[in-house]
């Protein structure tokens, strides 16, 4: 189990690196799709079918919107301009400081990640603390066979309501930003 997930994750990391370095924006978006659909496979292997269904549809719709944005524009990345080259020479003179800053930030990030990991249970040996009540009493209290839906709409209804409000606000925001002609 762990080996298969690791292989999928390494594949996703390679796809992510390619997406960030592609010259054409369209191929970058398609490589972004590698990562999104790889995430769907991970969710299926981790026994989360609800998340897999949502992620596969949301990824498709996001790709449609992104391709609609990119398709009619200048897709190729620009060459480095003269100002950029001047900056580059300036940066080269300070290369030592930059490398030092990068190494220090990397060490700090790794150390804090290590601190966060040590208090977790190892993979696959999760101990239920909070969700024991949801698992063994939730079905009788809500009457819903799917426990994720029971948690989502009954125990944590406020969260769901806030999320629906955020989606509503996003739709209103997109309508407002993209309006050209004002209403008469």
């Amino acid at each position: 189990m762990e080996i298969i997930l690791s292989i999928v994750l390494i594949f996703m990391i390679i796809g992510a690196l390619f997406a960030l370095h592609a010259r054409d924006l369209l191929s970058a978006l398609i490589s972004c799709g590698i990562v999104g659909y790889g995430l769907v496979i991970c969710f299926l292997l981790l026994k989360a079918p609800d998340l897999a269904i949502v992620q596969i549809v949301v990824e498709t719709i996001t790709l449609i919107i992104m391709i609609a944005v990119v398709l009619d524009s200048t897709r190729h990345e620009l060459e480095k301009t003269a100002i950029e080259k001047k900056w580059k020479s300036l940066i080269n003179s300070k290369a030592l400081i930059n490398v030092l800053i990068t190494v220090i930030i990397g060490i700090v990030l790794l150390y804090s990640f290590r601190l966060a990991i040590t208090h977790l249970n190892p993979f696959g040996e999760h101990i239920l603390r909070m969700s024991e009540a949801y698992l063994y009493g939730g079905a009788d209290k809500t009457g819903s066979a799917n426990l994720v839906t029971g948690v989502l709409f009954d125990f944590r209804g406020y969260d769901t309501f806030g999320e629906a409000t955020i989606l509503f606000t996003a739709a209103i925001g997109v309508l407002t930003i993209l309006r050209i002609k004002g209403r008469k």
Binding site: L51, V54, V58, H126, L152, R156, T160, I166
Partner: peptide, 19 residues
Amino acid sequence: YVDPLPQAMVLTAIVISLA
């Protein structure tokens, strides 16, 4: 059963990230 609580949290987070 696997833990349903992180799954419910991530389900809300996915739709928020779409918005």
